[in-house]
Design a protein around this nucleic acid. Structure first.
Length: 348
DNA sequence: AAGACGTGGCG
DNA sequence: TCGCCAAGTCT
C-alpha cells in the first residue's frame, strides 16, 4: 500500500469533527484556513464561530466595516489577516460576482492567500490536485522521507513542495491534504511524536533511525527587539481618550491609548519633558492619579515594555485627533491584548 | 530574501 | 522559568 493511501485511510477513521468540516463550502473553508494560519485549532475555534455568526455569508463580510471585522478578530493576533480577509471578500464581491473563485490562480491572487492556503482551498473546496504544504506537512515529510533540508529557506521549501507533489493522491487531493495535516497535528507532533499510533511507522525514515527529534531542521534564530511604551490613560470626567493605530507597525488599525515610545526605559519625569508630551498637553493642567505596574508583552520579534499612567485633565481641555469614550463603550473598539489586560485591572 | 507580524500553551 | 512553536503571508 502507498504511503498516501495508508495516511488517507488512517484519516478516515481518526479525523476530528471540526465545525468547518461539517458543511464544507468555499467561504467557510477559506475562513478556517485564514484563522488557522500560525494558530492552534483550540485558539481559533471560538473565532471561527464568532465570524460565521456575525458574517454568515461572504457578502456580509464584504459589506462590513473594517472596524467590525477587526473587532471580531480582536485577540487573535496577526491582524493583517483580518485586513486581508476583508479585502479579499470585497474583491470576490466586486470582481467575481460574489462567487468564490474556483481556479487555483484566481484563489492564489486573493490577498492573504499564499501557496499553502491556495492549495488547501483548491483541494478542499474544489477537489483540485494541489499539494498543501504547511508546518505539519514539513514535519511529516521530513521524518518519513528523511529530508534534512531546512524548512525556513526558499530552497528547502521547494524541496518539500516537490516531495509533497509527488506524494499527492490525485484522486482525492482534499482528503489527502487534510490527512497529511491531521497526522502532523495529532500523531507526528513536534515534541514527543506518537510513533506507536502512526500508520506509517514501518516506513518512516526518522523512526527507523531514531531521530524524529532532530527533524525537521531550521536555520534562523529570531532576534528580539525591545521597545518601551508609555501609555497615558487620560480621563476627562468619565471618558477615556483612545486613538486608532496606523496601518504599519504592530496592531495595524487597532485602537490604543495616547502613546509615547522611547528607545530606552524612561521615567515619567523624562516623558513630561518630551516633545510628545508637549504636543499632547501643551501646558494644560494634568493630575497623575496612578502609575501601573510594568507590563512585559512578548511578540514574536519584539518585547514591549509598557507602563500605564492614569491622568486626569480638566473639562475645558480637548485632545485633538483622539476620541473620548466612556468605559461601557470600550467593547465597540478592537484593542490589542496588552490594552485589554490593562482595562481588566481597572475594573477591580 | 530576510525580517516582520500576536497570542497562548507547553515541557 | 522561558524558549519554542502553531493549519503562513507580505514586503
Amino acid at each position: 500500500m502507498q504511503v498516501s493511501q495508508l495516511i488517507g485511510s488512517w484519516y478516515d477513521s481518526h479525523k476530528r469533527s471540526l465545525p468547518w468540516r461539517e458543511n464544507p463550502e468555499p467561504y467557510r473553508i477559506w475562513l478556517s484556513e485564514i484563522i488557522l494560519q500560525q494558530t492552534r485549532v483550540n485558539q481559533g475555534m471560538p473565532y471561527y464561530t464568532r465570524f460565521t455568526e456575525r458574517f454568515p455569508t461572504l457578502r456580509e463580510l464584504a459589506d462590513a466595516s473594517l472596524d467590525a471585522v477587526l473587532l471580531a478578530w480582536e485577540g487573535l493576533g496577526y491582524y493583517n489577516r483580518a485586513h486581508n480577509l476583508h479585502r479579499a471578500a470585497q474583491t470576490i464581491r466586486d470582481e467575481h460576482q460574489g462567487i468564490f473563485p474556483s481556479d487555483y490562480s484566481s484563489i492564489r491572487a486573493l490577498p492573504g492567500i499564499g501557496d499553502y492556503t491556495a492549495a488547501a482551498i483548491a483541494s478542499l473546496a474544489f477537489n483540485l490536485p494541489y499539494a498543501a504544504v504547511d508546518g505539519n506537512v514539513y514535519r511529516v515529510l521530513s521524518r518519513i522521507l528523511g529530508i534534512p533540508d531546512p524548512v525556513d529557506t526558499s530552497s528547502g521549501k521547494k524541496t518539500f513542495q516537490n516531495a509533497a507533489n509527488s506524494l499527492l493522491d490525485r484522486q482525492l487531493p482534499g482528503r489527502h491534504n487534510q490527512a497529511m495535516i491531521e497526522l502532523g497535528a495529532l500523531v507526528c507532533l513536534p515534541k514527543n511524536p506518537q510513533c506507536s499510533s502512526c500508520p506509517v511507522q514501518h516506513c518512516c525514515w526518522a523512526f527507523k533511525e531514531g531521530i524524529t527529534r532532530e527533524l525537521p531542521t531550521k536555520n534562523k534564530k529570531s532576534r528580539i527587539r525591545n521597545r518601551y511604551f508609555h501609555y497615558l490613560a487620560i480621563w476627562q470626567d468619565h471618558n477615556l481618550y483612545i486613538k486608532q493605530r496606523n496601518a504599519k507597525d504592530i496592531w495595524p488599525m487597532l485602537y490604543e491609548l495616547p502613546l509615547i515610545e522611547t528607545p530606552h526605559p524612561a521615567e515619567l519625569e523624562t516623558l513630561m519633558l518630551s516633545r510628545e508630551w508637549q504636543t499632547l498637553f501643551h501646558g494644560t493642567k494634568v493630575t497623575l492619579l496612578n502609575t501601573s505596574r510594568s507590563y512585559l508583552h512578548k511578540l514574536s520579534h519584539q518585547h514591549i515594555h509598557a507602563r500605564f499612567y492614569k491622568i486626569k485633565v480638566e473639562p475645558d481641555y480637548t485632545l485633538e485627533e483622539y476620541r473620548a469614550v466612556p468605559a461601557d463603550e470600550f467593547n465597540r473598539y478592537a484593542f490589542p491584548k496588552l490594552i485589554l489586560s490593562y482595562f481588566n485591572t481597572m475594573k477591580q
